[in-house]
C-alpha cells in the first residue's frame, strides 16, 4: 500500500490528529516503512486456508439476562469525568 499525502490527510481526519506540514514527509516515510514491514506477511501462501479470527477455539461464553446495578459505579464514573452536570457527561457542542 502506497502512503502519500492524500492517505495521510485521510488518516489525520480519522484520528482527529493534525500533523505539522514540516513533519509530514517524515511521517509518510515512517508509515510506509511500517506498512512495508507488515506486507512481508503477504508472501505467505494462504490460498488454501480459511481466515482465522482468533487462536482460541470454541464459542464465546454467554451470559444469562439477569440485571445488576450498583449506584456507586455511575457515581464514581461521573466523578472522574472531565466534566459533568446534573448526572450528564458534558462535552463541547457537537456540530451536526
Amino acid at each position: 500500500m502506497q502512503i502519500d499525502a492524500t492517505v495521510l490527510s485521510g488518516l489525520e481526519k480519522l484520528s482527529r490528529l493534525q500533523i505539522d506540514s514540516d513533519k509530514q514527509k517524515n511521517m509518510i516515510d515512517q508509515l510506509s516503512e511500517i506498512v512495508t514491514y507488515v506486507e512481508n506477511l503477504s508472501e505467505l501462501d494462504t490460498d488454501h486456508l480459511d481466515a482465522a479470527f482468533s487462536t482460541l477455539t470454541g464459542g464465546t461464553p454467554l451470559r444469562q439476562d439477569d440485571s445488576r446495578s450498583d449506584p456507586s459505579i455511575p457515581e464514581a464514573i461521573l466523578k472522574y469525568a472531565p466534566e459533568s452536570a446534573d448526572d450528564f457527561f458534558v462535552v463541547p457542542a457537537i456540530i451536526d
Binding site: 439476562d65 439477569d66 440485571s67 445488576r68 446495578s69 449506584p71 455511575p74 464514573i77 450528564f88
Partner: peptide
C-alpha cells in the same frame, strides 16, 4: 432485561447515566 454485553438494566425513562458500567 439487560444490555447486550453487560448486566446493566435496559430502561427507557431512567435518570441520566443510572445504568452505566465500565
Amino acid at each position: 432485561a439487560t444490555k447486550l454485553f453487560c448486566a446493566c438494566p435496559t430502561s427507557f425513562a431512567a435518570h441520566p447515566n443510572t445504568y452505566i458500567c465500565p
